[in-house]
Structure formats: C-alpha cells, structure tokens
Design a protein around this nucleic acid. Structure first.
Lengths: 222, 222
DNA sequence: GATTTATGAATGAAGG
DNA sequence: CCTTCATTCATAAATC
C-alpha cells in the first residue's frame, strides 16, 4: 500500500488505495515511514487535492496565456504589469497606450538638470512642491516624479564616479558563457520562478471557472 | 512537449528516482483553453499574483511534507530555484551575492499584509518575535526584517495621503486613471469585482484559513 | 522589430 | 516615526 499522496494528475487521481481511517500521525515524519502512516486526514487530503488541482488548472492557464503573449507581440502592448486604462481600442494593433510611467519632457528635464546642478542636493518637500508646480506648466508631472527624479539623479550620479572606472570591468556578469543570441530574453518560465512561487511575472488571465472553483473550495473550507 | 509547471524547489532533490510525474497538466486542455485577454487593474493583478503564489506555496509545503514521510515520492522536474542560498561565485569570483537584502516570500508577504491590516498599529517586540517565528516557516527572515517591514509599510501607507505622495499635482490630463499606488491597501477580497476577471466570486484565500491550514500541516510535519 | 540601454519607480535597510 | 540611501525591477527610448 501507500500513504495518501497527491496525485498531480488532476484527471485521474482516484487511483490510490488509501484507507479512510483516521490514523492521524502515529508517527511523525521523522521516521520516513513509507507505509500506512497518514500525515493528513482524508478530509485534509481531499481539500488539498482540490487545491492543487485548481492550482494545476491555473498553471495551465498561465501557460496558455504565456504562449499567447509570446506569440502575439501586440498583446504585449497592454502593459501587463501596469494596466491603468481601458480595455477597448485593442483589436487591430495600436492602443493609445497611456504613458504608464512618467517621462520628463525636454523642458522639464532641462529645468530639473539645472536645479540639480545648483548643488541643491536635498530638495526639501516644499522645494519639491515648488518645482513640481513649475514643471506642471511644461507637462504632466507629480511631486513623486520630481522626488524620484532627484533621488535617481543623485544616486546615479554618485555611482558613476565610483563604480565605473576607466579600466574596470565591474560588470556583474558571471555567466559570460552564453550564446550571444541567447541572452537573457526574459526567461518566460512563468510557472517556476525565484521564490518557490510564481514570482513576479506579469500574467493576466481570466476564467470564471477558476473563480467558481475557488469559491466553492472556499466555502467548503468552513 | 510538456507544459511548464511548478518546479518544486528543494534541496534534496538528488534522491528523486523514476516515478516521474511529467504528465501533470498535460491534458485537461478542455474547456479552459480560451483565455480572455483580460483587463485588470493593478490591484487586481497584484492580488492575483499573490493568490497564485499562495497556491504555489501550498503545493510546495505539501510536497515538502509529503516527501518527509515518503521518501519514495519525489516530484519530477525539481530544480533549485531558491534565491536565498545561492551557490554561485565560482569561477571568476566576481559578484558574489545574488541577494543581499531580504525579500519576503509571497507567503510571508501575505501574512504580513494580513497582520498589518488587522490595524494593530505597532507590533510590540514580542509581537515581532512571534511574527518572525511564524514567518520563518516560509522562508528566511529576521526580526529586523519584520520590524523594518512594518516601519516601511506604515510610512509608505501614510505618505500616500500626504505630501510627497503621488497624484498630488493637479494633473489636467488623465482623469480616468486611478492611482496605482493604492496597491496593498487591503488584501481582503479585492478580486471580487464584478466588472473584471474572476467576477464576483470570492476567490480570496488570503487570510488565515489557508495560512492556518498550512501552519497546522507544518506542525504535523515536525 | 528584436535587443540593449537609460531611467522612473518600488522597497528593504540605515540614520536621526 | 521620518528621511535618506542603495539596490532592484520594469519599461520607454534608443540602437542595431
């Protein structure tokens, strides 16, 4: 026999012969008892099985999603990670992609640079407000933008001096043994990622099935 | 070819033998094939990610535990992916670290957010210890990390309302853009938005339910 | 139009 | 607690 275990094949998982007894851990995991010891009640098993089954479904969805994304570039224009706008206007090709991140206008940049050069290393809050207010005349901008700009400007300015030396290849590339074309083309391994989770990949999907699945599961939980 | 799917991070993968389970999600192409190219708000995306991460974590935990009990059961396709103890820095010797600063795992984040939302403003020392202890089960973490996280979380949360927060300027454009900064306001039930994605289904396992479920599983494990 | 670079933004940690 | 710094991520812009 065997203990209850998850069958990852979510279609035919009813193969196991696990008994329905409630022998809660007679022995803890330590002993590697590879026999009839259950670590979970059947109830738990069932729940978890469903959860995982659902997860599998989600994974599949993600895979589908990914395929679609990678095959259709235009879709990528939707800015998966930062969608702030309408769903319409997609269709053919171009969407009035809203600027999802601020980009200083030449004028703004010039002014910012100028202020930066003044040596005013620390733009106070009030200062930021003023600057922002002024720059607003030259385009959309927020205080945060200004704040970030100075932060970044300074940090990078500083790094330039130290990090990049004349003959100092400080590059943090230790994986130099790579095919020139192989690069780091964003390993779209959506389903496996850094933190033993799905990571931060931007993936969107939609499925009422999953929704309801989860929902029912949730209820069952009580 | 097989679809991508979760790769179980594990340190003791060497003992995997046969018993490959590559067939997980292969089939099942059925009714889920269609993916609706969605439109979700940032908040929804963020939540979705978390949700999925939670599933991933659950699965991982399950596998972990299960393997402790039955050493015969190893899930194929395992590859290390844990970022925390990274083994590189071999050849060249450049660039040793890959991660110098703590990054909360999805599970940790979820828990932290949950605690944060409890309104318990300032976690006391003891509270921090407890939290840290709990979170340790989900990845490397220290009390300082927890402390800092709460500090930052609060500061950030507060800054949204006042000064240097985003949209403080009187942007005359884009009025239909909701502030993307409002991210982690409340992990609870954000996905249930009738207009989008998962519909009105309550898809959130966010809270303690799964958490405690996992936790108890862990305890059994030990 | 696929890659690479520059840079806006997010966030963990440190200082005060 | 509040401010600042450092590092990292994502992506608009630039480049080939």
């Amino acid at each position: 026999e065997q203990v209850n275990y998850m069958e990852w094949d979510d279609k035919q998982q009813q193969q196991q012969h696990g008994q329905q007894q409630e022998h809660e851990l007679e022995q803890q995991g330590g002993g590697f008892g590879m026999m009839y010891v259950k670590v979970m009640t059947d109830e738990q098993m069932e729940l978890l099985r469903k959860q995982i089954s659902i997860y599998a479904t989600i994974c599949e969805q993600l895979v589908e999603m990914h395929k679609s994304i990678t095959s259709q570039q235009d879709f990528a224009g939707m800015r998966l990670g930062n969608v702030y706008y309408d769903p319409l206007t997609t269709s053919a090709g171009h969407k009035i992609s809203t600027r999802q991140r601020w980009t200083p206008t030449p004028m703004q940049l010039q002014i910012l640079e100028h202020i930066f050069d003044q040596g005013t290393g620390t733009p106070s809050k009030q200062k930021i407000k003023d600057i922002t207010n002024e720059l607003t005349q030259h385009g959309p901008i927020s205080e945060t933008n200004v704040y970030n700009w100075f932060q970044n400007r300074r940090a990078r300015s500083k790094r330039k001096q130290t990090g990049v030396g004349p003959n100092n290849a400080e590059s943090e590339v230790e994986t130099e043994v790579e095919s020139p074309k192989e690069k780091k083309a964003k390993p779209e391994n959506i389903l496996s990622n850094e933190n033993h989770a799905l990571g931060e990949n931007e993936v969107c999907f939609q499925s009422s099935e999953i929704g309801s699945e989860l929902h029912s599961l949730d209820q069952q939980h009580e």
